[in-house]
Amino acid sequence: MRRNSRYALAVAAAASATVAAVLAPSASAAPAAANPGPGFPARYSAPYAETWNSPSALANARNATGQKYFTLAFVIAGNGCNATFNGDTAINNASWTSAINSLRAAGGDVIASFGGASGTELGLACTSVSTLKAQYKKVIDTLNLTRVDLDIEGSTLNNTAANDRRNKALAQLQSEYATAGRKLDVQYTLPVNPTGLEQNSINLLNNAKSNALTVNLVNIMTMDYGPAMNMGKAATDAATALHDQLGRIWTTKTSAQLWAMEGNTPMIGVNDTQAEVFSTANATTLANFAASKGIQELSFWSLGRDKACATNGQLSDTCSGTSQSAYQFTRTLR
């Protein structure tokens, strides 16, 4: 599938780790749970922060820009049906817990994103609703989350049994947390074309609705379409098409409510499809459009790439490949 390389740039960084050793508790293990966070406002930005990079990236970005919200990428299976950061790092890792607590003390918060294009997605590794639910609950309780993101793409998106299992597990958790007086917002991050979601994504969302899962927002990956195009216009065209598609699923919502169900996530700079370049001017176009429509969330792939490369035009997992100042996309999309 055309998006299956979206996060493949980082696979090599994780591949050399010995999973069993990293998953083992250490003498400096973190507390059982991170401190509670303040949650999220009605509209916010939350760039994807790579969990194979240093947790200090959160504080560095906050200190440089004032950015307060981040999406932790990614929680995937490590050593079977076992939720880990990046397949090799325990969820209660002391460095990540400390970084999250510091961010929350400054008024920020985090979303944990499950899935991505690399590694084994938990809905595939955990083959029953009960085991999958237990892994989601472990992450939510350990990190004291109020919001989770499910980044479902590639062949995983076509696995209808896993989609149903995932939606059932999340719906049960959502109900149980509500009974206990806790909030759990669930969002889906899905591939898109400028003409909107493909049918497999629509099927997933219809399944979520049929399982009584409340989907707070649908975040579209406005990237890697194939041919070169104006990436700012492609992002806003996709958002407009999504608005109509969401209205055909959630038929009782107003137009304003449908816009508020949207998220938008470009890949900044040079995309995996290298003819596509999402520029700082494209970011301004998207930010203005999102403000005018009341879109709930803006994000981008990825925080570690939000700086210029030595040479423009190159695809890299550590810089954008387009002309920019450090953290320019973070500032623009805030």
Rank of each mutant, 00 (worst) to 15 (best):
R305W: 04
A99E: 02
S292R: 10
A24P: 04
T156F: 10
N159C: 09
T65M: 07
A178G: 05
A241W: 04
L205E: 01
Q172F: 03
L315M: 08
L217W: 14
M1N: 15
Y48E: 06
V270F: 11
D317N: 15
N193I: 03
L258H: 03
Y44Q: 00
A77Y: 15
L122V: 08
Q172Y: 08
A24Y: 05
A17D: 08
V110W: 06
P41S: 05
W301Y: 14
I295F: 07
V75N: 01
T265V: 09
W259L: 04
A14R: 12
G37D: 07
V148F: 08
S299Q: 13
A90C: 01
S255W: 06
A256P: 04
G87A: 11
A59Q: 13
A283S: 13
T330L: 02
V215W: 02
A8N: 06
S175K: 13
N86W: 09
V129Q: 11
A308K: 11
A24L: 07
S255N: 14
P194M: 10
N203A: 13
S56D: 15
D272N: 15
G232L: 02
A212Q: 10
E198R: 15
R305G: 02
D224P: 06
N92V: 03
M1A: 15
A134P: 07
T97F: 04
A256L: 05
K293G: 10
A281T: 14
A33W: 05
I220H: 02
A161H: 07
L286C: 09
E121S: 13
G247A: 01
L173S: 04
T189L: 05
Q324E: 14
E297N: 10
A32M: 11
S302K: 05
A326P: 00
